[in-house]
Computed example of a mutant assay.
Amino acid sequence: MATRVLLTGFEPFGGESVNPSWQAAELVAAAPPEGIAVTAVQLPCVFGESLSALRAAVDEVRPELVVCLGQAGGRHGVTVERVAVNVDDARIPDNAGARPIDSAVVPGGPAAYFSTLPVKRCVAAMRSAGVPGAVSNTAGTFVCNHVAYGLAHLLATELPGVRGGFVHVPWAPEQVVDGGAPSLPVETVARGVAALLRAAVVTGDDLRVSEGATH
Protein backbone atom coordinates (compact mmCIF):
# COMPACT_ATOMS: atom_id res chain seq x y z
CA MET A 1 0.00 0.00 0.00
CA ALA A 2 1.25 3.46 -0.89
CA THR A 3 1.88 5.88 1.97
CA ARG A 4 -0.74 8.63 1.95
CA VAL A 5 0.79 12.10 1.99
CA LEU A 6 -1.01 15.44 2.12
CA LEU A 7 1.10 18.17 0.51
CA THR A 8 -0.15 21.74 0.71
CA GLY A 9 0.91 25.02 -0.86
CA PHE A 10 -0.43 28.55 -0.67
CA GLU A 11 -2.24 30.80 -3.10
CA PRO A 12 -0.29 33.91 -4.20
CA PHE A 13 -0.09 36.78 -1.72
CA GLY A 14 1.51 40.18 -1.29
CA GLY A 15 0.71 41.25 -4.84
CA GLU A 16 2.40 38.25 -6.48
CA SER A 17 0.74 36.44 -9.39
CA VAL A 18 2.19 33.02 -8.49
CA ASN A 19 3.24 31.12 -5.40
CA PRO A 20 6.02 28.58 -5.95
CA SER A 21 4.90 26.56 -2.94
CA TRP A 22 1.68 25.65 -4.74
CA GLN A 23 3.41 25.19 -8.09
CA ALA A 24 5.85 22.74 -6.52
CA ALA A 25 3.09 20.88 -4.69
CA GLU A 26 1.21 20.40 -7.96
CA LEU A 27 4.31 19.06 -9.71
CA VAL A 28 5.06 16.55 -6.96
CA ALA A 29 1.45 15.35 -6.87
CA ALA A 30 1.44 14.91 -10.65
CA ALA A 31 4.53 12.66 -10.51
CA PRO A 32 4.88 11.38 -6.93
CA PRO A 33 7.78 9.29 -5.68
CA GLU A 34 7.28 5.53 -6.00
CA GLY A 35 5.26 4.08 -3.16
CA ILE A 36 3.83 7.44 -2.10
CA ALA A 37 0.32 8.70 -2.89
CA VAL A 38 0.45 12.50 -2.82
CA THR A 39 -2.64 14.69 -2.63
CA ALA A 40 -1.94 18.39 -3.22
CA VAL A 41 -4.25 21.00 -1.69
CA GLN A 42 -4.00 24.77 -2.02
CA LEU A 43 -4.50 26.77 1.17
CA PRO A 44 -5.73 30.37 1.31
CA CYS A 45 -3.17 32.87 2.57
CA VAL A 46 -5.60 33.94 5.29
CA PHE A 47 -5.33 33.60 9.04
CA GLY A 48 -7.90 31.17 10.38
CA GLU A 49 -9.26 30.12 6.99
CA SER A 50 -5.97 28.41 6.16
CA LEU A 51 -6.29 26.15 9.20
CA SER A 52 -9.92 25.37 8.41
CA ALA A 53 -8.91 24.34 4.88
CA LEU A 54 -6.01 22.28 6.24
CA ARG A 55 -8.29 20.49 8.71
CA ALA A 56 -10.79 19.71 5.94
CA ALA A 57 -8.01 18.30 3.76
CA VAL A 58 -6.69 16.14 6.60
CA ASP A 59 -10.18 14.80 7.27
CA GLU A 60 -10.65 13.95 3.59
CA VAL A 61 -7.24 12.49 2.76
CA ARG A 62 -6.56 10.79 6.11
CA PRO A 63 -2.82 11.10 5.51
CA GLU A 64 0.00 9.34 7.27
CA LEU A 65 2.29 12.31 6.62
CA VAL A 66 1.51 16.01 6.14
CA VAL A 67 3.96 18.47 4.63
CA CYS A 68 2.93 22.09 4.21
CA LEU A 69 4.90 24.30 1.82
CA GLY A 70 5.15 28.07 1.88
CA GLN A 71 7.01 30.83 0.08
CA ALA A 72 10.00 32.48 1.77
CA GLY A 73 11.26 35.10 -0.64
CA GLY A 74 14.96 35.85 -0.19
CA ARG A 75 16.01 32.39 0.94
CA HIS A 76 18.55 30.59 -1.22
CA GLY A 77 17.26 27.03 -0.85
CA VAL A 78 14.46 24.82 0.39
CA THR A 79 14.36 25.14 4.16
CA VAL A 80 12.81 22.64 6.56
CA GLU A 81 11.35 24.37 9.60
CA ARG A 82 12.45 22.97 12.95
CA VAL A 83 9.93 24.85 15.12
CA ALA A 84 6.63 26.75 14.97
CA VAL A 85 5.65 29.35 17.58
CA ASN A 86 2.26 30.25 18.99
CA VAL A 87 2.06 33.82 17.72
CA ASP A 88 0.55 35.71 14.79
CA ASP A 89 2.32 39.03 14.21
CA ALA A 90 1.67 40.18 10.65
CA ARG A 91 3.94 42.71 8.96
CA ILE A 92 1.53 42.86 6.00
CA PRO A 93 -2.19 42.05 5.72
CA ASP A 94 -3.25 38.57 4.66
CA ASN A 95 -5.37 38.07 1.55
CA ALA A 96 -8.53 38.93 3.50
CA GLY A 97 -7.03 42.15 4.85
CA ALA A 98 -6.44 40.83 8.37
CA ARG A 99 -3.30 41.88 10.20
CA PRO A 100 -3.20 40.33 13.67
CA ILE A 101 -0.55 41.59 16.07
CA ASP A 102 0.74 39.51 18.97
CA SER A 103 -2.22 37.10 18.79
CA ALA A 104 -2.04 33.42 19.68
CA VAL A 105 -2.50 30.88 16.91
CA VAL A 106 -4.16 28.62 19.48
CA PRO A 107 -5.16 30.42 22.68
CA GLY A 108 -3.80 28.48 25.64
CA GLY A 109 -1.62 26.28 23.44
CA PRO A 110 2.06 25.57 24.09
CA ALA A 111 4.54 28.33 23.27
CA ALA A 112 6.00 26.22 20.44
CA TYR A 113 6.05 22.84 18.74
CA PHE A 114 8.98 21.04 17.15
CA SER A 115 8.41 19.49 13.74
CA THR A 116 7.86 15.74 13.71
CA LEU A 117 9.65 15.47 10.38
CA PRO A 118 13.24 14.24 10.53
CA VAL A 119 14.38 17.71 9.54
CA LYS A 120 18.10 17.04 9.15
CA ARG A 121 17.51 13.79 7.27
CA CYS A 122 15.16 15.66 4.93
CA VAL A 123 17.79 18.32 4.29
CA ALA A 124 20.42 15.66 3.58
CA ALA A 125 18.07 13.94 1.13
CA MET A 126 17.47 17.17 -0.76
CA ARG A 127 21.18 17.90 -1.00
CA SER A 128 21.79 14.38 -2.29
CA ALA A 129 19.22 15.12 -5.00
CA GLY A 130 21.20 18.21 -6.01
CA VAL A 131 18.83 20.70 -4.41
CA PRO A 132 20.10 23.33 -1.96
CA GLY A 133 18.50 22.75 1.43
CA ALA A 134 18.92 23.84 5.01
CA VAL A 135 17.34 23.64 8.45
CA SER A 136 15.48 26.80 9.43
CA ASN A 137 14.80 27.82 13.01
CA THR A 138 12.08 30.34 12.25
CA ALA A 139 8.98 30.08 10.10
CA GLY A 140 8.27 33.77 10.62
CA THR A 141 5.07 35.05 12.22
CA PHE A 142 2.81 35.32 9.16
CA VAL A 143 0.39 32.75 7.72
CA CYS A 144 3.16 30.18 7.13
CA ASN A 145 3.96 29.94 10.83
CA HIS A 146 0.21 30.07 11.54
CA VAL A 147 -0.23 26.90 9.48
CA ALA A 148 2.95 25.29 10.80
CA TYR A 149 1.79 25.75 14.40
CA GLY A 150 -1.83 24.84 13.65
CA LEU A 151 -0.74 21.63 11.94
CA ALA A 152 1.55 20.70 14.81
CA HIS A 153 -1.20 21.35 17.35
CA LEU A 154 -3.67 19.25 15.38
CA LEU A 155 -1.27 16.34 15.15
CA ALA A 156 -0.23 16.56 18.80
CA THR A 157 -3.72 16.79 20.22
CA GLU A 158 -5.83 14.71 17.84
CA LEU A 159 -3.66 12.71 15.45
CA PRO A 160 -0.55 11.55 17.33
CA GLY A 161 0.01 8.73 14.82
CA VAL A 162 0.48 11.22 11.97
CA ARG A 163 3.75 13.08 11.41
CA GLY A 164 4.19 16.38 9.68
CA GLY A 165 5.90 19.71 9.36
CA PHE A 166 6.45 22.87 7.36
CA VAL A 167 8.90 23.60 4.55
CA HIS A 168 9.71 26.97 2.99
CA VAL A 169 10.67 27.37 -0.67
CA PRO A 170 12.44 30.28 -2.41
CA TRP A 171 11.00 32.63 -4.99
CA ALA A 172 10.60 31.29 -8.51
CA PRO A 173 12.77 32.98 -11.18
CA GLU A 174 9.80 34.82 -12.70
CA GLN A 175 9.30 36.59 -9.38
CA VAL A 176 12.78 38.16 -9.44
CA VAL A 177 13.23 39.15 -13.06
CA ASP A 178 15.75 41.84 -12.08
CA GLY A 179 18.03 39.14 -10.69
CA GLY A 180 18.37 41.01 -7.43
CA ALA A 181 17.32 38.16 -5.14
CA PRO A 182 17.92 34.40 -4.98
CA SER A 183 15.48 32.05 -6.66
CA LEU A 184 15.09 28.42 -7.71
CA PRO A 185 13.20 26.89 -10.63
CA VAL A 186 9.98 25.32 -9.43
CA GLU A 187 11.05 22.02 -11.04
CA THR A 188 14.17 22.03 -8.84
CA VAL A 189 12.09 22.76 -5.76
CA ALA A 190 9.72 19.91 -6.65
CA ARG A 191 12.67 17.52 -6.99
CA GLY A 192 13.83 18.53 -3.53
CA VAL A 193 10.37 18.10 -2.03
CA ALA A 194 10.07 14.65 -3.59
CA ALA A 195 13.41 13.66 -2.04
CA LEU A 196 12.27 15.06 1.28
CA LEU A 197 9.07 12.99 1.15
CA ARG A 198 11.00 9.81 0.39
CA ALA A 199 13.20 10.41 3.42
CA ALA A 200 10.34 11.36 5.75
CA VAL A 201 8.19 8.40 4.78
CA VAL A 202 10.94 5.89 5.51
CA THR A 203 11.70 6.99 9.08
CA GLY A 204 10.99 9.58 11.73
CA ASP A 205 14.46 9.19 13.23
CA ASP A 206 16.72 12.13 12.52
CA LEU A 207 20.42 12.36 11.76
CA ARG A 208 22.69 13.52 14.55
CA VAL A 209 24.66 16.10 12.59
CA SER A 210 25.23 19.80 13.11
CA GLU A 211 22.81 22.06 11.24
CA GLY A 212 22.73 24.80 13.87
CA ALA A 213 23.06 28.54 13.43
CA THR A 214 24.80 31.30 15.36
CA HIS A 215 22.01 33.81 14.72
Score class of each variant (00 low, 15 high):
149 Y>M: 10
3 T>G: 04
188 T>S: 14
150 G>N: 06
152 A>W: 01
25 A>T: 05
189 V>G: 01
7 L>A: 09
189 V>A: 05
160 P>S: 11
163 R>N: 09
182 P>Y: 10
46 V>Q: 11
37 A>T: 06
202 V>M: 04
138 T>K: 02
24 A>L: 10
10 F>N: 03
200 A>P: 01
58 V>G: 00
84 A>M: 05
16 E>G: 02
48 G>H: 02
59 D>F: 09
201 V>K: 04
122 C>M: 13
184 L>C: 08
35 G>F: 05
129 A>E: 07
140 G>M: 11
151 L>F: 15
197 L>Y: 03
8 T>D: 01
190 A>G: 12
46 V>G: 02
103 S>W: 10
98 A>P: 01
90 A>M: 13
95 N>M: 14
66 V>D: 00
205 D>R: 14
205 D>F: 09
133 G>D: 00
170 P>D: 04
202 V>G: 02
185 P>S: 03
205 D>P: 00
95 N>P: 10
169 V>E: 07
161 G>C: 06
173 P>T: 07
97 G>P: 14
134 A>D: 14
134 A>W: 09
122 C>A: 14
14 G>V: 06
147 V>K: 01
208 R>Y: 10
173 P>A: 08
143 V>F: 03
67 V>G: 04
23 Q>I: 04
152 A>S: 15
102 D>R: 13
35 G>R: 05
94 D>N: 12
143 V>P: 00
184 L>Q: 08
82 R>L: 10
86 N>R: 07
46 V>I: 15
44 P>C: 08
9 G>M: 07
5 V>G: 00
44 P>W: 03
69 L>N: 03
123 V>S: 01
42 Q>D: 10
55 R>H: 12
51 L>Q: 07
2 A>E: 11
47 F>L: 07
126 M>N: 03
214 T>K: 07
137 N>T: 13
71 Q>I: 09
177 V>N: 04
13 F>S: 11
175 Q>N: 10
170 P>T: 04
184 L>E: 04
145 N>Q: 08
138 T>V: 10
60 E>R: 15
202 V>A: 15
98 A>H: 15
31 A>Y: 02
181 A>F: 10
79 T>V: 08
99 R>L: 11
79 T>F: 00
207 L>P: 00
61 V>K: 11
55 R>Q: 14
138 T>R: 05
208 R>D: 15
155 L>S: 05
148 A>G: 05
85 V>S: 13
93 P>W: 07
55 R>C: 03
147 V>T: 10
67 V>R: 03
28 V>S: 05
56 A>E: 15
146 H>N: 05
57 A>P: 11
140 G>A: 12
160 P>M: 10
171 W>T: 00
156 A>S: 14
174 E>M: 12
94 D>T: 10
82 R>A: 12
47 F>N: 01
44 P>V: 06
53 A>Q: 09
93 P>L: 08
7 L>K: 03
53 A>N: 05
16 E>Q: 11
